[in-house]
Design a protein around this nucleic acid. Structure first.
Lengths: 284, 284
DNA sequence: GGGTTATGTTCGGCATTACAAAACCGGAAT
DNA sequence: ATTCCGGTTTTGTAATGCCGAACATAACCC
């Protein structure tokens, strides 16, 4: 009990049963679409059936869960639809994103998404699926890794190095694929290239076979609000097309910036010598 | 304590602190977009500041609330975005609705919505706003009154009379405006007219100055899945246009029905004599 | 069809812990 | 500088959430 009094202190003002209830919601969310039974909930929550039952009943009575037959299985209720809609309305200029994404998807034929920055992390708030048959299971509200996603790197590329190091320090650079950048200096190089290009590239760094291209957009004080991105399957895209996609994404990010009456910051070119010879790499 | 042991029994398996937490979420949702402070929460929850604080901290730590400065105000967190998105994906054929609504909005210039039936109540699951500057504050996940909304009446019109009476008996027919139907027989007449027309009309019955036109759609077993509707301001719509809107809505509802591989039920014409002379009213 | 297993639901008691009140703190306004 | 007001922390106590075990009910299988 002496090990980490800090965590203990942080927990002091948390209501345990509510924590459990929230965890229950998460479990059901992850277990979609078939729902979970009381027994399965109890096992996963590491609690007794009676407790899981009481929690589920409470959520049920308030519309946060619904009961799908047969064999009482709990599924997320429509109440979350309302709350989700409310949240998306609270996002500043929330209805600006979709038209831009629609246009970007039409131009590229790819699924496009918009993320806003939450302490450096991209949180996706809007999505327009492409016409392809392959569907990426990308949920709104999802936080992606800053170092292993195009949107994340686009956001990081607008931040001073100290902030990048702080954010990376907080959660490390866990490896997702063999292409994932796991060293801070390499990441910083990548961010510098991103600044020069105007868009970031996730080349199978988050998931095998998937690429992502993103560009940041800004508010009036030149602060990065978030990033928009397109996602596709690596195999059927020649590299010249990647460049084209990149410019399209960057163009549409600029449209968003102007919608916000925003302004992109002027580039602070690095003096890092390792970077200097990358200047012309853009046109490769 | 002897008054209603039934309610007491139903409450027995509810977790009080979780109930409170959910109520807290509702309060914050209703108080949007500026959020609430701990003190305001405590007052509205009729609890002490410390309790409200603990609840809010718990939700905060899990991303269900966010802290908007200044003077710590709590606002709904982006976690709800994820859950809302998940729920909307769980709706069968969830991505079928939007294209149809887009088309309907283009054809009518009005805001159009789709609702699914939950025990006779329409719950709105998708929305496409019209080009007008006036915005209706219609939230997804919102349950409208069955007797005082076009979508509700469209759904009721597909149900046998006994079901309609049961549903109305459960919550009564509360008056919203002076046009609201508050008598069951009148409602039944209206439903019969709806069946003959092929679409339902809410003529300022839910809110003054607002009209709504809806039509039901069906699944393969001829059961009503829900209804789609258009909403507009009464004043600038001539009655012949209402008819045109009605047919457009009904047409698009049929499109949805066919997307579900569904089939509309054959009309069971009533023998109610009061209705007989309404048959030709359609062409008024 | 009866026995068997796996569930969902109900109950009672103990220990936990969520709660309220009050003290503490820090910033804004006077 | 002082007061006020709201947010945070503390602490004791009573409420209540939790568990285990009993009960009910449905699915399953010889």
């Amino acid at each position: 009990m002496t090990e980490d009094a800090e965590v203990e202190a942080a927990d002091r003002y948390r209501v345990k049963s509510v924590q459990r209830a929230l965890r229950l919601v998460e479990l059901i969310a992850d277990a979609a679409p078939n729902g979970l039974t009381v027994t399965e909930l109890a096992r996963q929550l590491k609690t007794s059936k009676s407790t899981a039952f009481a929690l589920a009943q409470t959520m049920l009575a308030n519309g946060y869960l619904r009961d799908v037959q047969p064999g009482p299985r709990y599924q997320l209720g429509l109440a979350f639809l309302r709350l989700g809609d409310l949240v998306s309305r609270q996002i500043p200029l929330g209805d600006t994103y979709r038209p831009v994404l629609v246009q970007l998807t039409e131009a590229t034929g790819l699924t496009s998404r918009a993320a806003i920055s939450e302490d450096g992390y991209p949180v996706f708030i809007e999505r327009v699926d492409g016409p392809g048959t392959v569907r990426f299971h990308t949920l709104l509200g999802h936080r992606e890794a800053p170092h292993a996603s195009a949107a994340g790197k686009a956001i990081l590329s607008t931040l001073p190095t100290t902030d990048v190091e702080r954010i990376c320090g907080a959660h490390g650079l866990p490896r997702h694929t063999r292409n994932t950048i796991t060293e801070v200096p390499i990441l910083l190089d990548d961010l510098e290239r991103t600044r020069r290009r105007g868009f970031s590239i996730d080349d199978e760094e988050d998931a095998e076979g998937i690429f992502c291209i993103a560009a940041p957009f800004f508010d009036h004080s030149q602060r990065c609000v978030g990033a928009i991105s397109v996602t596709g399957i690596k195999i059927d895209v020649p590299s010249w097309k990647m460049q084209e996609f990149g410019h399209l994404v960057a163009d549409h990010a600029r449209i968003l910036t102007s919608r916000f009456n925003g302004q992109a910051p002027t580039l602070h070119l690095t003096s890092n010598p390792r970077i200097q010879n990358l200047v012309d790499e853009v046109s490769n």
